[in-house]
Design a protein around this nucleic acid. Sequence first.
RNA 1: GGUAGGAUACUCAAGUGGCCAACGAGGGGAGACUGUAAAUCUCCUGGGGCAACCCUACACAGGUUCGAAUCCUGUUCCUACCA
Length: 427
Amino acid sequence: MTILEDLHWRGLLNDCTAEEALVERLAEGPISLYSGFDPTADSLHVGNLVPLIALRRFQNYGHKPIALAGGATGSIGDPSGKKSERQLLTKEVLDHNIESVKTQLASILDFNEAIENTARLVDNATWMAPISFLDFLRDVGKHFTVNSMVAKESVRARMEDRDVGISYTEFSYMLLQGYDFYHLYQSENCELQIGGSDQWGNITIGTELTRKKAGATVYGLTLPLITNADGTKFGKSESGAIWLDPARTSVYRFYQYFINVDDRDVIRYLKYFTFLDQDEIAVLEKQHEENPGARVAHRALAREMTQLIHGEEATDDAIKASQILFGGGLEDISENALREVANEIPNATVSSDTLSGEGLSLLDALVESGLSPSRGQAKKDIQGGGVNVNNKRIQDLQSKLTSPDVHFDKYILLRRGKKNYAALIVE
RNA sequence: GGUAGGAUACUCAAGUGGCCAACGAGGGGAGACUGUAAAUCUCCUGGGGCAACCCUACACAGGUUCGAAUCCUGUUCCUACCA
């Protein structure tokens, strides 16, 4: 199977500037390709993952991936898919973002310099910054008519909306990105750019510029926009975007996001995001269809993704934490796993004194921990059988929490309903 | 500006002197069933109390009454019709 066949089977081929020619070129040998990532935040999120993983797919097939951090383009702002003009980022924020994003890019691609096709990381500010405005206008701007630029979807959408409009700055974005491609062709012999389907316009500017200035054919390839079957936006949970940075989205939440993927989406996402091959996914698909309740495919997806981004060890912790929060008792739980859980859920601190003697009334503990808004509600929760202490149901209103309830001298796990947890941390 | 009608809990909406912390629906919470799903079914849905009961609440401020969401007066806001 070739890389393009692989992408095609995965449903990752959205559009290509010249597919047949690219097939021939790829057959001749390894190619350098790139994809750009603008540092609009100090972390990538799962929505950025498709192109990034696609770069890795190419690398796995022996090609040479280049990850481009958009130090220059990011300072302008890509109008593609944006309904309104964006706030420019300050230099400091931009620098910080680039540094953070760089390390994330590095975690997915193989930067091992010992291998032939090691990945590279470049920042377009290094070649954009020195170019003078005049030179840019003469060398790049001259090759494009405003007529064609205005016709691009990203610009047209904004022109049609008279209320928002588009600034000259964002209008120029496509030229910068186009120049990147030309530059990478010249300096790295980079012949292919990949990106999301919203990047089509920007990518074709690059292939055009390279053809006009260097007389060379370079290729563009776009990947589909990921859409959830239920119409919600991929990569967004109730609590916001799913980031790759564990400080923003904990490993546990990251794992859970993929566990909770809609049944209808799970096989598609296995193809989009994982490196599992056709046979492996076919097996998962069969198991999923026969018994969706077992959620084998979901588990595989969540584990693969979490391992890819956060590594083996953190994944194991997330899986264990999930087991505690969605299943069994605490009997065989390790202190590490319990700490993981406690970090994940709201918590309240109680002093060990309150647990000695009489103990702390469960009602007070529920209110204290924020699980129940009032004592009255706490009572109803208990009477309704909705309250668990250390994953054991308690239905006695008079129940007190005492030291034997404390795990590892530190934790008491409270739960209201199916998934509202809180930890009492004893000090 | 005139006339008429209205303002009830998260939302809609019943209630026109005591049986009203207030019918019903939606929403929300809990339980059962399940797959950390969907659907379905049951219960709960102002605060405190084990409870009797107490407090707070039917736009706002007063009043009548043993007793007011309900009657009266004034105020504010909304809606319709007329100017």
